[in-house]
Design a protein around this nucleic acid. Structure first.
Length: 227
DNA sequence: GTCCAGGGCCTAC
DNA sequence: GTAGGCCATGGA
């Protein structure tokens, strides 16, 4: 499994190159983006992020001071905007209550401890917490998601594993604890699944096959299973 | 018009 | 612990 996962990583990296995620200027922008992109396309989330920026609200104190009523219309494009406005405020409440509003202080906390804290915030689930840890905090916490699960299924690597934590552990137990690799690996899987396999009649990594209503790559033959 | 995107919470069983 | 409903935009 170690060799397989590393082999897939190298194939993806060779095919697509570094993805250089997350597309954001600073850590808080990553965090806001991670919440706003929940179950919506990045383009929709990006519009909402830019709107907050436009009104100088893309910083912890401004979100903290703003009401849900003020924030919600600005992030309308990100879908579920009332809930997401609440979520952004839940995060800044946590940040000010525990770290005096300082992301620097927050990110000095041990990775697993901080992960638990983030998961206690209403609106921050596993994928969002791991995205914050990895892409904002540069901490080695692998991000799994729907693409990752689909990807592993497609290549027959899931072997009955299904939960988020199981999939996350599959990567963390089998590839080096390397923030750069965690960062690129997740970004490459998303890029492969979304930008390439979905948009092109054939992709460089594997042939495309239509299953049910979605388009999936389905041939594992490009990756040798060494174990 | 239909489909679906880089989820998470709540409730019921 | 998990299946299903809910939230409720915009581009293809």
């Amino acid at each position: 499994m170690k060799k397989t996962l590393l082999g897939i990583y190298n194939s993806l990296l060779n095919s697509y190159g570094e993805r250089n995620w997350w597309p954001a200027k600073n850590r808080f922008e990553v965090i806001v983006g991670a919440v706003l992109v929940q179950n919506v396309s990045w383009s929709n989330a990006e519009k909402a992020v830019n709107n907050l920026k436009k009104y100088n609200l893309l910083n912890p104190p401004s979100i903290h001071k703003s009401s849900v009523k003020k924030l919600a219309p600005l992030i309308r494009s990100s879908r579920f905007y009332n809930q997401k406005a609440e979520k952004l405020k839940n995060f800044t409440d946590y940040l000010f209550n525990n770290y005096n509003g300082s992301l620097n202080k927050m990110f000095t906390v041990d990775t697993e401890k901080l992960r638990k804290e983030l998961l206690d915030i209403k609106g921050i689930g596993r994928e969002t917490a791991d995205s914050i840890l990895l892409y904002a905090g540069k901490k080695p916490s692998f991000v799994s998601d729907a693409y990752t699960k689909r990807f592993l299924e497609r290549y027959g690597l899931l072997n009955g594993l299904s939960s988020y934590e199981e999939i996350r552990s599959l990567f963390m137990d089998n590839i080096p604890e390397d923030t750069y690799m965690y960062n690129e690996y997740h970004a490459l899987i998303v890029h492969h699944g979304y930008a390439v396999c979905k948009s092109k009649p054939s992709c460089q990594i594997c042939p495309v096959k239509k299953i049910s209503k979605k388009i999936y790559c389905s041939h594992p033959s490009n990756f040798e299973h060494s174990d």
